[in-house]
Structures are given as C-alpha cells and as structure tokens.
Simulated assay, not measured.
Amino acid sequence: MPPVNEQNIRLDGKVAVVTAGANGIGEGAAMSIARFGGNVVVADNDAENGERVAAAIRALGREALYIPTDVTHTEQIEAMIEKAAAHFGRLDILVNNAGGSRRIRFMDQSERSWRRHIDLNFISLLAATQAAAKVMISAGNGGTIINVASSEALRAAPGYAVYAACKAGMVSFTRSMSLELSDHGIRVHALAPDMIETPGLKPYFDNASEEMNAARDRYIPLKRLGSIDEIGSVVVFLASSMSSYLNGLTIPVDGGALASSGWTRSPADGNWNLYHG
C-alpha cells in the first residue's frame, strides 16, 4: 500500500458492473464510480434509463455499456458478465444492487411471492457474485464486490419478512465470501441503507405529513433522508485502495438510525430518550 494521497481514491482504468444501475441507488453508484475514473456496465431491464445513465457516464469521458438484464434469470446474469468482460477485457468491481419488495403480511403471502422475493433479492446476488468472481480470479488482479443490502437485514421488518430475510442472508453471505475469496485478493462488503431519497420513493417523501417528518427527525440522528450520491461515495471508498485493509464489513448508511435503536429525540428539549414517541 503506497502512502495515502488523493490518487488512492481514484478508480482510473477499473471496470465496474452495477446491477439495477438504471435508477436510484444503482444510478448513484454507477455515476460515482465514473466520476472517480471508473468505466461502468449498467445492467438493468429498464432500457430507457439504462441507456440514459450510460450516456451520462460517457459524457464524463468514461466508457459505459448498457446491457439489458433481468436478474431473476441466472442465464441473463451470466451472459451479462461474460459480455462485460469481453468488451472491457477485465472486471474489477461488482455492485450487487438489484432487489425490491412490497409490503405484505407474511401470513397473506403466497409461495409464488416468496420465490419472487428470493429470486430477485438473493438468487440474483449468488449468480452475479459467482460469475464475476470467476472473471476476477481468472485475471488474478483481485477485485471488490459490494452488496447493497438494507437496514432491514439488521432489524425486524414486519410486513417485509421475506425481503428482510433475503437481505440478512446477503449480510451472512458477504462475510462468508470475504473469507472464501480473500486468497484471490477479492474483498467483499455490504451496505445497509435505510431511508434514501430515490426516484421511486420521492413522491412518498414529498407527500409526507408533518407528523411523519417529525417522526423521521426523532428516529434519524442526522434528521434527514440520505441521497443516492451518499451511497455512491461509500461504494467508491470501498472499491478504492483507500479501503485496502477492510474486508467483510456491513456498513449502515442510514444517518445513524441503526445506532439510535429505540432512542428517540424529544421534540420538546432535543434530549435523547429510550422508547419515547
């Protein structure tokens, strides 16, 4: 490791694959990587926005490739990784960002819904990790895999039980892969975002009541939502040599919400109290 300087955060010449990179957190990760010198493959089934993000990356002077990918089909993930490696001749960074859920009580959830959640949030992670790691191992240059989990992986999530279980599995898988792949110089981490202002959630946040905003300020120590660029900044750090001695971490990117864990800020005097509404 050379002495720390501004070049240690650069990703010049590196190639990243970002799943679900056409919007939201994935877009933030893809654009952040590009701003720090990386070339990016945007893997998504949203062609319009996938091409838009790829064009924005090229406007920064980086190379970008949009590859249509439905991550619920393993063969499409494998083909995407193969095409990315063939096009760029290398693969250094994988951001496993694909996932999603809708609120439903577990007792009302069907087996079809279980399997859809598992395919989207967990099987896609396994498939992309295996395919990308094979390329990284073959090249012998190491690499970084960053799994976008959720704060729901670290706490109870009524109404999202299967989704949360998948994300908790992602955190466990991250730890195991950080050991299995360490001999090849591949580092594996996870992020656990909480309330991030993405396009999909923006209408919800924009229409939030005063009561909901007050609750946010009670529960989130930084008293605001996170941005996709704030997720992207952590992705860049983990993918760069600035974090070269970190491995197997799960980092909450949540404004301190996990740390508060039942402690709430009083609107009257600003003091923190346990389990106060």
Results as ranks from 00 to 15, higher is better:
Thr74His: 04
Thr144Gly: 13
Ser124Asn: 08
Ile93Ser: 14
Ala86Asp: 02
Ile137Cys: 08
Ile145Thr: 06
Ile93Val: 13
Asn97Lys: 11
Tyr163Gln: 03
Ile137Gln: 15
Leu120Arg: 03
Gly143Asp: 14
Leu91Gln: 14
Glu51Gly: 15
Ile137Thr: 14
Arg90Met: 15
Leu126Ser: 10
Ala98His: 02
Thr74Gln: 12
Ser150Cys: 06
Leu126Phe: 13
Met80Cys: 09
Arg116His: 14
Ile123Gly: 02
Asn141Trp: 08
Leu120Gly: 01
Ile57Pro: 12
Ala85Ile: 12
Asp119Lys: 13
Ile104Gln: 00
Ile104Cys: 09
Ile67Leu: 11
Ile123Glu: 03
Leu94Gln: 02
Ile93Tyr: 15
Gly61Pro: 07
Ile81Pro: 07
Phe106Gln: 00
Ile81Thr: 07
Lys134Val: 07
Ile77Met: 09
Gly143Lys: 11
Arg90Gln: 11
Ile93Phe: 15
Ser110Lys: 13
Ala161Trp: 00
Gly159Ser: 14
Ala128Met: 04
Ile67His: 08
Ala84Leu: 05
Ala55Asp: 01
Asn141Lys: 10
Trp114Leu: 07
Ile118Ser: 02
Lys134Asn: 06
Lys134Phe: 04
Tyr160Ser: 09
Gly50Ala: 04
Asp119Thr: 07
Lys134His: 09
Asn121Ala: 01
Arg116Cys: 15
Leu125Tyr: 11
Ala54Gly: 05
Ala161Asp: 06
Glu63Asp: 14
Asn97Leu: 04
Leu60Thr: 06
Met107Ala: 08
Ala132Cys: 05
Gln76Pro: 09
Arg103Tyr: 01
Ile146Asp: 03
Met136Ser: 06
Val148His: 11
Tyr160Trp: 05
Asn96Cys: 12
Arg58Leu: 00
Glu82Ile: 02
Ala86Trp: 11
His87Thr: 13
Ile145Asp: 13
Ile93Lys: 14
Gln109Trp: 06
Leu94Arg: 10
Ser101Pro: 02
Ala64Ser: 11
Thr74Val: 14
Ala98Ser: 13
Gly159Cys: 07
Arg52Leu: 12
Asn96Asp: 04
Thr69Lys: 06
Ala55Met: 11
Tyr66Thr: 04
